[in-house]
Computed example of a mutant assay.
Amino acid sequence: MSNLPEPSLQPPFTFQDGTLFLVNKPKGWTSFDVVNKLRWKIRKKLGLKKFKVGHAGTLDPMATGMLNICTGKWTKRLQELQGLDKTYTGTITLGATTASYDAEEPINETFPTDHITEEMIRQAAIDLTGDLQQLPPIFSAIKVGGQPLYKKARRGESVEVKPRPVTVHEFEITRIELPEVDFVISCSKGTYIRSLAYDLGKSLDSGGYLTALRRTVVGPYLEENMWNLEELLTAIGDRDIV
Protein backbone atom coordinates (compact mmCIF):
# COMPACT_ATOMS: atom_id res chain seq x y z
CA MET A 1 0.00 0.00 0.00
CA SER A 2 3.05 2.19 -0.71
CA ASN A 3 3.45 4.78 2.08
CA LEU A 4 -0.23 5.01 2.93
CA PRO A 5 -1.31 3.93 6.42
CA GLU A 6 -2.47 0.32 6.84
CA PRO A 7 -6.04 -0.02 8.11
CA SER A 8 -6.64 -1.49 11.56
CA LEU A 9 -8.64 -4.67 10.97
CA GLN A 10 -8.59 -6.11 14.49
CA PRO A 11 -7.53 -5.25 18.05
CA PRO A 12 -5.27 -4.27 19.70
CA PHE A 13 -5.50 -0.66 18.53
CA THR A 14 -2.71 1.92 18.78
CA PHE A 15 -4.99 4.93 19.11
CA GLN A 16 -2.42 7.53 20.14
CA ASP A 17 0.37 6.49 17.75
CA GLY A 18 -2.27 6.32 15.02
CA THR A 19 -4.96 4.06 13.63
CA LEU A 20 -6.88 4.07 10.37
CA PHE A 21 -10.39 2.62 10.50
CA LEU A 22 -12.43 1.90 7.38
CA VAL A 23 -15.96 2.36 8.71
CA ASN A 24 -19.20 1.47 6.95
CA LYS A 25 -21.19 4.66 7.56
CA PRO A 26 -24.82 3.89 8.42
CA LYS A 27 -27.58 5.52 6.39
CA GLY A 28 -28.95 8.63 8.07
CA TRP A 29 -25.74 9.40 9.97
CA THR A 30 -23.56 12.35 9.05
CA SER A 31 -19.82 11.74 8.72
CA PHE A 32 -19.37 13.97 11.77
CA ASP A 33 -21.83 11.80 13.75
CA VAL A 34 -19.60 8.77 13.16
CA VAL A 35 -16.40 10.62 14.11
CA ASN A 36 -18.08 12.02 17.23
CA LYS A 37 -19.28 8.60 18.33
CA LEU A 38 -15.83 7.05 17.90
CA ARG A 39 -14.08 9.98 19.60
CA TRP A 40 -16.39 9.67 22.61
CA LYS A 41 -15.77 5.92 22.83
CA ILE A 42 -11.97 6.25 22.52
CA ARG A 43 -11.78 9.10 25.03
CA LYS A 44 -13.75 7.01 27.49
CA LYS A 45 -11.46 4.02 26.87
CA LEU A 46 -8.27 6.08 27.30
CA GLY A 47 -9.60 8.23 30.14
CA LEU A 48 -8.82 11.46 28.25
CA LYS A 49 -10.79 14.71 28.03
CA LYS A 50 -9.51 15.44 24.51
CA PHE A 51 -8.40 13.18 21.69
CA LYS A 52 -7.91 13.74 17.96
CA VAL A 53 -10.14 11.82 15.55
CA GLY A 54 -10.89 12.92 11.98
CA HIS A 55 -12.22 11.66 8.67
CA ALA A 56 -11.14 12.00 5.05
CA GLY A 57 -13.90 12.61 2.51
CA THR A 58 -17.41 13.46 3.68
CA LEU A 59 -20.35 11.21 2.85
CA ASP A 60 -23.84 12.69 2.67
CA PRO A 61 -26.30 11.47 5.36
CA MET A 62 -28.30 9.31 2.90
CA ALA A 63 -25.12 7.58 1.68
CA THR A 64 -23.53 4.47 3.15
CA GLY A 65 -20.13 2.89 2.78
CA MET A 66 -16.50 3.69 3.37
CA LEU A 67 -15.52 6.47 5.72
CA ASN A 68 -11.76 6.67 6.35
CA ILE A 69 -11.19 7.68 9.96
CA CYS A 70 -7.79 8.40 11.56
CA THR A 71 -6.91 8.74 15.24
CA GLY A 72 -4.06 10.31 17.17
CA LYS A 73 -0.91 11.15 15.22
CA TRP A 74 -2.39 9.79 11.98
CA THR A 75 -4.91 12.64 11.80
CA LYS A 76 -2.01 14.53 10.20
CA ARG A 77 -2.27 12.08 7.28
CA LEU A 78 -5.90 12.83 6.41
CA GLN A 79 -4.82 15.01 3.46
CA GLU A 80 -3.10 12.00 1.88
CA LEU A 81 -6.33 10.02 2.06
CA GLN A 82 -8.56 12.86 0.81
CA GLY A 83 -6.70 12.98 -2.49
CA LEU A 84 -7.37 9.33 -3.38
CA ASP A 85 -9.71 8.19 -6.16
CA LYS A 86 -13.03 6.73 -5.06
CA THR A 87 -15.58 4.21 -6.34
CA TYR A 88 -19.32 4.37 -5.74
CA THR A 89 -22.41 2.30 -6.51
CA GLY A 90 -25.93 3.66 -6.41
CA THR A 91 -29.22 4.51 -8.07
CA ILE A 92 -30.35 7.51 -10.11
CA THR A 93 -34.08 8.14 -10.56
CA LEU A 94 -34.90 9.79 -13.88
CA GLY A 95 -37.88 12.02 -14.64
CA ALA A 96 -37.54 14.47 -11.76
CA THR A 97 -35.15 16.86 -10.01
CA THR A 98 -34.63 18.15 -6.49
CA ALA A 99 -32.79 21.24 -5.22
CA SER A 100 -30.13 19.06 -3.55
CA TYR A 101 -29.82 16.68 -6.55
CA ASP A 102 -30.69 13.80 -4.21
CA ALA A 103 -33.61 12.52 -2.12
CA GLU A 104 -32.79 14.78 0.84
CA GLU A 105 -34.95 17.56 -0.65
CA PRO A 106 -38.45 17.20 -2.17
CA ILE A 107 -39.01 16.91 -5.92
CA ASN A 108 -39.24 20.38 -7.43
CA GLU A 109 -39.86 19.52 -11.09
CA THR A 110 -40.93 16.49 -13.14
CA PHE A 111 -40.08 15.54 -16.73
CA PRO A 112 -41.12 12.90 -19.29
CA THR A 113 -39.10 9.67 -19.61
CA ASP A 114 -41.05 7.91 -22.40
CA HIS A 115 -38.50 8.96 -25.01
CA ILE A 116 -35.49 7.57 -23.12
CA THR A 117 -33.90 4.38 -24.45
CA GLU A 118 -31.24 2.12 -22.97
CA GLU A 119 -28.81 3.21 -25.70
CA MET A 120 -29.36 6.87 -24.83
CA ILE A 121 -28.64 6.23 -21.14
CA ARG A 122 -25.43 4.31 -21.84
CA GLN A 123 -24.21 6.98 -24.27
CA ALA A 124 -25.00 9.74 -21.80
CA ALA A 125 -22.89 7.94 -19.17
CA ILE A 126 -20.00 7.69 -21.65
CA ASP A 127 -20.32 11.42 -22.38
CA LEU A 128 -20.00 12.12 -18.64
CA THR A 129 -16.71 10.19 -18.44
CA GLY A 130 -13.28 11.82 -18.54
CA ASP A 131 -12.11 15.29 -17.49
CA LEU A 132 -15.15 17.44 -16.70
CA GLN A 133 -15.99 20.91 -15.44
CA GLN A 134 -18.58 19.98 -12.84
CA LEU A 135 -21.07 22.32 -11.19
CA PRO A 136 -21.47 21.24 -7.53
CA PRO A 137 -24.94 21.21 -5.93
CA ILE A 138 -25.92 24.35 -4.02
CA PHE A 139 -26.74 21.98 -1.13
CA SER A 140 -23.10 21.07 -0.51
CA ALA A 141 -20.41 21.56 2.14
CA ILE A 142 -18.29 23.77 -0.14
CA LYS A 143 -17.55 26.99 1.73
CA VAL A 144 -18.20 30.43 0.26
CA GLY A 145 -17.37 33.39 2.47
CA GLY A 146 -16.53 30.99 5.30
CA GLN A 147 -19.93 29.31 5.30
CA PRO A 148 -21.05 26.00 3.76
CA LEU A 149 -23.25 26.48 0.69
CA TYR A 150 -26.03 24.33 2.12
CA LYS A 151 -26.55 26.79 5.00
CA LYS A 152 -26.97 29.66 2.57
CA ALA A 153 -29.28 27.56 0.37
CA ARG A 154 -31.50 26.61 3.32
CA ARG A 155 -31.84 30.29 4.22
CA GLY A 156 -32.99 30.96 0.67
CA GLU A 157 -29.98 33.14 -0.12
CA SER A 158 -28.81 33.53 -3.70
CA VAL A 159 -25.78 31.31 -4.17
CA GLU A 160 -23.23 31.43 -6.98
CA VAL A 161 -21.56 28.08 -7.62
CA LYS A 162 -18.51 27.87 -9.85
CA PRO A 163 -17.62 24.78 -11.91
CA ARG A 164 -14.71 22.68 -10.68
CA PRO A 165 -12.44 20.30 -12.60
CA VAL A 166 -13.04 16.62 -11.81
CA THR A 167 -12.24 13.34 -13.52
CA VAL A 168 -14.68 10.47 -13.96
CA HIS A 169 -12.64 7.38 -14.76
CA GLU A 170 -15.63 5.07 -15.19
CA PHE A 171 -19.40 5.53 -15.36
CA GLU A 172 -20.87 2.07 -15.88
CA ILE A 173 -24.61 1.48 -16.05
CA THR A 174 -25.42 -1.82 -14.30
CA ARG A 175 -29.25 -1.87 -14.30
CA ILE A 176 -31.97 -0.02 -16.20
CA GLU A 177 -35.54 -0.29 -14.95
CA LEU A 178 -36.98 3.11 -15.65
CA PRO A 179 -37.26 5.42 -13.90
CA GLU A 180 -34.36 3.82 -11.99
CA VAL A 181 -30.81 3.42 -13.26
CA ASP A 182 -28.06 1.70 -11.24
CA PHE A 183 -24.39 2.57 -11.72
CA VAL A 184 -20.76 2.08 -10.74
CA ILE A 185 -18.69 5.27 -10.82
CA SER A 186 -14.94 5.63 -10.24
CA CYS A 187 -13.76 9.22 -9.95
CA SER A 188 -11.27 11.74 -8.61
CA LYS A 189 -11.54 13.58 -5.32
CA GLY A 190 -14.11 16.38 -5.23
CA THR A 191 -16.52 14.67 -7.65
CA TYR A 192 -20.18 15.03 -6.70
CA ILE A 193 -22.15 11.93 -7.68
CA ARG A 194 -25.32 13.97 -7.11
CA SER A 195 -24.21 16.36 -9.86
CA LEU A 196 -23.57 13.44 -12.22
CA ALA A 197 -27.12 12.23 -11.51
CA TYR A 198 -28.50 15.68 -12.34
CA ASP A 199 -26.34 16.00 -15.45
CA LEU A 200 -27.35 12.53 -16.67
CA GLY A 201 -31.01 13.48 -16.47
CA LYS A 202 -30.40 16.81 -18.18
CA SER A 203 -28.46 15.19 -21.05
CA LEU A 204 -31.46 12.90 -21.63
CA ASP A 205 -33.83 15.90 -21.97
CA SER A 206 -35.34 14.88 -18.66
CA GLY A 207 -34.42 15.14 -14.99
CA GLY A 208 -32.42 13.02 -12.62
CA TYR A 209 -31.61 12.83 -8.92
CA LEU A 210 -29.68 10.46 -6.68
CA THR A 211 -31.75 8.03 -4.62
CA ALA A 212 -29.07 5.64 -3.30
CA LEU A 213 -25.29 5.89 -2.87
CA ARG A 214 -22.59 3.66 -1.42
CA ARG A 215 -18.83 4.26 -1.37
CA THR A 216 -17.08 0.94 -1.89
CA VAL A 217 -13.43 1.82 -2.58
CA VAL A 218 -11.05 4.64 -1.59
CA GLY A 219 -7.65 4.36 -3.27
CA PRO A 220 -6.27 0.93 -2.27
CA TYR A 221 -8.79 0.47 0.55
CA LEU A 222 -11.51 -2.10 -0.16
CA GLU A 223 -15.08 -2.60 1.03
CA GLU A 224 -14.28 -6.06 2.41
CA ASN A 225 -12.07 -4.48 5.10
CA MET A 226 -14.70 -2.10 6.48
CA TRP A 227 -15.84 -2.19 10.07
CA ASN A 228 -19.51 -2.23 10.95
CA LEU A 229 -19.80 0.75 13.31
CA GLU A 230 -21.43 -1.16 16.17
CA GLU A 231 -18.85 -3.95 15.94
CA LEU A 232 -16.02 -1.40 16.04
CA LEU A 233 -17.50 0.35 19.07
CA THR A 234 -17.77 -3.02 20.82
CA ALA A 235 -14.18 -3.93 19.89
CA ILE A 236 -12.91 -0.62 21.30
CA GLY A 237 -14.81 -1.08 24.54
CA ASP A 238 -14.08 -4.76 25.10
CA ARG A 239 -10.39 -5.03 24.20
CA ASP A 240 -7.18 -3.81 25.73
CA ILE A 241 -5.19 -1.15 23.91
CA VAL A 242 -1.53 -0.75 23.13
Rank of each mutant, 00 (worst) to 15 (best):
G72P: 09
E172K: 15
D199H: 09
D205R: 08
L132S: 10
R239C: 08
E160T: 07
D238K: 10
T89Y: 08
L196F: 07
G145H: 14
D205N: 15
G18L: 08
T58D: 09
D182G: 02
D127A: 08
T234P: 00
I107K: 02
D240T: 07
E177Q: 14
V144H: 04
P165K: 03
L48M: 14
T216F: 12
P7I: 05
G201S: 13
H169Q: 13
K189P: 13
L48V: 14
W74K: 01
R194N: 09
E80L: 15
P136V: 09
L128S: 04
E223Y: 15
W29L: 10
I138N: 01
T75G: 12
G54F: 11
K44W: 09
K27W: 02
V184L: 15
F51S: 02
K52F: 04
V23Y: 00
T58H: 01
C187T: 09
I126T: 08
H169W: 03
L9F: 13
G18T: 10
K151Y: 01
N24D: 15
F171W: 13
I42M: 11
T117M: 13
T117F: 12
Y209L: 01
D240W: 03
L213C: 04
R39N: 12
L222G: 02
D60I: 05
K27Y: 07
Q79D: 15
L149T: 04
M1H: 02
L232F: 07
D60V: 06
A96E: 01
C187L: 10
I92S: 09
S188I: 06
H169S: 10
G57Y: 01
L196H: 12
L196S: 06
L67I: 08
F13M: 01
V168C: 09
H55I: 09
G28C: 14
P179K: 15
T174S: 11
T191R: 10
